[in-house]
């Protein structure tokens, strides 16, 4: 393979084309945010960003809506992250280390919930949340988002605990360590990277979530960035450059964190699919 220069060139070209296609839309978001109206709507296509226009980002941030959107998204994401991890760690541990009646059903149930579309449950959840007074509230969105990401996080953590030698915790148990302590003192530190990966997935499922946010929240002060950015689509009064700047500020955190956690995220998600 290495001796074949044509093959190598073909590979380089292939990789570059694939990378170009993968990156282009976000690049275009960036370029559009830094393009003058004249070039945006004229006949000339501007392919490079005009960095002197970078002030559009500061301008977008000054607008009260954007800061509030991002803050609400942050609260929803952080809440979803904490609640999911808190629920997923013990169930992942139970599935990994114990054999008990109904274990198969729990695993199957976790797998099957991944098949339920948000759009299917949005109405009954809406009715349910209205009786609980959780409409127009960020905690309500956290509760709904957690239900949909919890199974994935649980499988990630189960897979991680599967990978730790049993002998470690058996030694601890002989020393009189209780199960909860075994989990928190022996296992958790060892699966820290997977916990971090699960936390990233849960965080960004809250950050990205749209269906519940647009259905449950009508109070503008409670709207997260997903609803805000979606409201830009087909809207004409906000300058296109501002739309793209806001969308990019909403997108970049997700991209950066996913890239960092990528390896563990993939391992966990596929483990969930295979073993479910």
């Amino acid at each position: 393979m290495r001796k074949n220069p044509i093959g190598t060139t073909a590979r380089v070209v292939g990789v570059l084309v694939a990378l170009g296609l993968a990156v282009f839309p976000l690049y275009w978001m960036f370029v559009t945010s830094l393009t003058s109206d004249h070039n945006l709507f004229g006949n000339h296509v501007q392919l490079l960003p005009d960095l002197s226009r970078i002030g559009v980002y500061a301008h977008a941030l000054v607008s009260q809506d954007v800061v509030r959107w991002l803050r609400n998204s942050l609260i929803i994401a952080a809440g979803t992250c904490l609640l999911s991890i808190g629920l997923a760690v013990p169930v992942g541990y139970a599935l990994s280390r114990f054999s008990f009646r109904g274990k198969g059903s729990v695993a199957l149930g976790l797998f099957l919930t991944q098949m339920l579309p948000e759009a299917l449950l949005v109405v009954p959840l809406f009715a349910f949340f209205r009786t609980l007074g959780l409409i127009d509230s960020l905690p309500g969105l956290i509760l709904a988002d957690t239900a949909f990401v919890l199974p994935i996080v649980a499988f990630i953590l189960k897979g991680a605990i599967d990978g730790i030698p049993r002998e470690l915790e058996e030694a601890a148990r002989v020393d009189g360590c209780r199960p909860l302590d075994v989990l928190t003192r022996i296992n958790l530190p060892l699966i820290a990277p997977s916990v971090a990966a699960g936390a990233v997935i849960a965080f960004f499922s809250g950050w990205n979530e749209y269906v519940f946010a647009v259905t449950f929240v009508s109070d503008p002060s409670k709207q997260p960035a997903s609803v805000g950015v979606a409201s830009f689509i087909g809207e004409l009064s906000t300058p296109t450059q501002t739309l793209m700047a806001v969308a990019l500020m909403y997108t970049l955190p997700a991209v950066v964190f996913y890239l960092i956690a990528q390896r563990h995220v993939v391992a966990g998600m596929t483990a969930g699919g295979v073993k479910g």
Partner: peptide, 20 residues
């Protein structure tokens, strides 16, 4: 790493840039 970017981008942002 770069190849993974589309997967990480929020669907709402993808819809906005695709529409544009």
């Amino acid at each position: 790493a770069l190849m993974a970017i589309p997967w990480a981008a929020p669907a709402v942002a993808v819809a906005l840039i695709a529409t544009w």
